[in-house]
């Protein structure tokens, strides 16, 4: 039996259904402000997790994407406050700054083996944080942070809803762009590098160039996501570089399924629902422990993530039918 989503037509219907769902959801909840805020942050993290996940297509993994998320936020906030241009435009600048730093880190790291890359990126976000609160405290406001202009002025009626729709649109465009890149020759080159670097080299693919490309694209859209978040919140502090922010996209992508477009989206939705559900139950520190346990269990028992769960269940049921 083939999976339901194997045919392109079914897959398209599924995508359209998801998008419609995303559009209708806030209205279903009667424009509840808390739900709307959760949804906005969730969609921003879908962009962030998808950008992080883009890197894994080349077999790389970063433990410090908060550096790009935060840099995008800081630069966009500063440019928007100084110039008065709409955050929707300055976030592109923020992304550009993140991409530049990504290029710098990438140039140093792309030749490195996975372990070195992970070790360097692990420290990187914290080092950027240190620089932000000490060396650049004059412009960044140190630990207090700075105010960031809102995406949409709160004077606009239903501004959160407008904000939400605009972010859903951006997320859809970003995922579409990733899809276009991945189905092009570049995507094939990524797969070749991931599976066997030596053979890819023999086939005339330059792994360093493609890895660098993936790194810069990933950094760029992480920066955009960071800018969206801080313009939504209205302020930015160096907390944005914390280890947590680096780890969230990893947790989302792994729980959903690494190296797939749907993985980070599914993962972000499931974990966000779980996370906020636990909060309403009044669980605080233990939430992190539960998420950590979930991550370990998924890596051990469901290495392809939650999106492989339906297939696994079906196979299990088929196996039982045969034996009975």
């Amino acid at each position: 039996m083939k999976s339901l989503l194997d045919s392109p037509r079914n897959r398209m219907y599924a995508i359209i259904a998801c998008l419609l769902m995303a559009l209708v959801l806030p209205i279903l909840f009667g424009l509840n402000l808390y739900i709307l805020t959760v949804l906005i942050l969730m969609v921003i993290f879908i962009i962030y997790a998808s950008s992080w996940n883009f890197l894994t297509y080349t077999g790389q993994g970063s433990l410090g994407h908060a550096a790009f998320f935060g840099l995008g936020g800081y630069i966009s906030a500063m440019v928007a406050s100084a110039s008065g241009i709409s955050p929707y435009i300055t976030m592109l600048v923020g992304g550009g700054a993140a991409a530049l730093v990504g290029l710098f880190i990438g140039v140093i790291c792309v030749r490195l083996k996975e372990w070195f890359l992970a070790m360097v990126t692990f420290g990187f976000a914290i080092i950027i944080q240190t620089l932000m609160v000490s060396q650049f405290a004059g412009v960044t406001g140190g630990w207090d942070g700075i105010a960031a202009p809102r995406l949409i002025s709160s004077a606009v009626p239903n501004y959160l809803l407008v904000e939400y729709y605009s972010i859903v649109l951006i997320a859809a465009l970003v995922v579409l762009l990733f899809w276009l890149i991945l189905r092009s020759r570049i995507g094939l080159a990524f797969a070749a590098i991931r599976e066997n670097e030596t053979e890819a080299r023999a086939a005339g693919i330059d792994p360093v160039r493609y890895r660098l490309f993936a790194f810069v694209v990933s950094a760029y859209f992480s920066g955009v996501a960071g800018a969206l978040e801080i313009h939504h919140l209205g302020y930015i502090t160096p907390e944005i570089f914390s280890v947590d922010i680096s780890f969230w996209p990893i947790i989302y992508s792994i729980s959903g399924g690494l190296g797939t477009l749907a993985g980070p989206i599914v993962g972000t939705i499931v974990i966000t629902v779980l996370w906020d559900g636990l909060q309403t139950l009044g669980i605080t520190y233990a939430r992190f422990i539960i998420i950590g346990l979930l991550l370990v269990l998924i890596i051990i028992f469901l290495p392809k993530g939650l999106i492989s769960l339906p297939d696994r269940i079906r196979k299990y049921l088929e196996g039982r039918q045969k034996t009975s």
Partner: peptide, 30 residues
């Protein structure tokens, strides 16, 4: 944690420590 996933891919081996970081840090905080 590490024995079940040894040899299943470097990314897995990297990311399992992240789960551990969460568990240990917050257990300590509790």
């Amino acid at each position: 944690c590490f024995r079940p996933i040894l040899g299943t891919g470097k990314l897995n081996e990297i990311f399992i420590s992240i789960g551990l970081i969460y568990i240990i840090q917050n257990a300590a905080a509790l």
